[in-house]
């Protein structure tokens, strides 16, 4: 499970409280239905992996991994067994005698994970474990991490502010904001059917239009009017005519269409697999859409006509503070 949210939303606080590093000022922590609020962190058996890795610099890799069995006095044999098992699991057994400073960041983090696992805990907290690493290593380690976790069948709470990372590693995403859970669900559900403008904007990329509902039929068919007066069809909703709404459409669902909304191209940028085209519609809303790398790319200043798949759009009630306030990250 991933805990996702902008910086300062309380993600790290949450897992520090769960693991016992911090004591909550109020409320209780339950693990498996058991109240663990008053159990100190050293007895709580919740593994924790730090963003800055924090391998003990004066110990080699083996001693780092053996630290937990050592302080729990589990005996030399058990220590050797555990360090071999977990160092092999993360593919670092060959280098067990090295010092942490001789390793790259990604390798260090793997050992840190092995160290946390060797404590035998069935719960692992990962505090932005990949964000201190280089971009490419970060992506590779994602899959490695998921493989290890699935193999051991343990529960992992993975904190990150990177929505792409959240979607690719987890079974479930919990989106946090202002110290509370905003919404949660499987990555695909939360991407396709976000429950708030904030979620739509934070997870993935999207175009947001401020509209007013102009027509609604019993079957849920809804039409809305954009700023500037153009009427468009959106997905089925329960809104009534006159309701102020926000319509969210992902760039990949926008396509050129002869009868679509007229918009002027403002910028075109190459993203590898596709071109991202940013346009401004007559309603002065920005609309972004993608053109395949080998497709026909408009030039800045061109006028294009765009429409979108109405079933892929999501309609929200218009937030009171306005869109800007709603999608603000800090």
């Amino acid at each position: 499970m991933t805990i996702l949210g902008p910086s300062g939303c309380g993600k790290t606080t949450l897992i520090k409280v769960i693991s016992g590093i911090w004591t909550p000022t109020e409320g209780k922590v339950y693990v498996d239905g058991r109240d663990v609020t008053n159990i100190p962190m050293e007895d709580r058996d919740v593994g924790y992996v730090f963003q800055n890795i924090a391998l003990f610099p004066h110990m080699n890799l083996r001693d780092n991994v053996e630290y937990s069995p050592r302080v729990k006095d589990q005996g030399d044999e058990r220590m050797a067994e555990l360090s071999e098992e977990y160092l092999k699991l993360v593919g670092m057994f060959q280098r067990a005698g090295m010092l942490p400073s001789e390793l790259s960041g990604g390798e260090q983090q793997k050992v840190a994970i092995a160290r946390a696992l060797a404590s035998g805990s069935k719960m692992l907290m990962l505090d932005e474990p990949l964000s201190a690493l280089d971009a490419r290593v970060r992506v590779e380690l994602r899959y490695e991490l998921r493989r290890i976790v699935k193999k051991l069948g343990i529960t992992v709470l993975h904190v990150t502010h990177d929505q792409e990372e959240a979607m690719s590693v987890s079974d479930r995403i919990v989106l946090m904001r202002y110290g509370a859970i905003a919404e949660s669900g499987a990555p695909l559900d939360i991407y396709r059917r976000p429950k708030s403008v904030f979620a739509a904007n934070f997870i993935g990329e999207t175009n947001l239009f401020e509209c007013t509902v102009s027509d609604w039929s019993k079957s849920g068919k809804t039409r809305v009017t954009m700023r500037g007066g153009r009427e468009i069809r959106v997905s089925r909703t329960d809104f009534r005519p006159g309701d102020a709404v926000v319509v969210s459409v992902r760039p990949e669902h926008v396509r050129p269409d002869e009868d679509g909304i007229e918009a002027k191209v403002r910028s075109v940028s190459f993203r590898g697999v596709y071109w991202r085209v940013r346009t401004m519609a007559e309603s002065s809303d920005y609309i972004e859409y993608d053109v395949p790398a080998d497709g026909e790319v408009p030039e800045v200043g061109d006028t294009v006509r765009l429409s979108f798949d109405r079933n892929a759009s999501v309609v929200f009630p218009r937030p009171e503070g306005g869109i800007e306030e709603e999608i603000r990250l800090e």
């Binding site: 100190p40 593994g47 924790y48 924090a54 937990s68």
Partner: peptide
Amino acid sequence: DVNYETAAMTLGASKWTA
């Protein structure tokens, strides 16, 4: 880094041992 000590404690070490 205070995290060294904290890491040791989440691994089961008492404060004194950490």
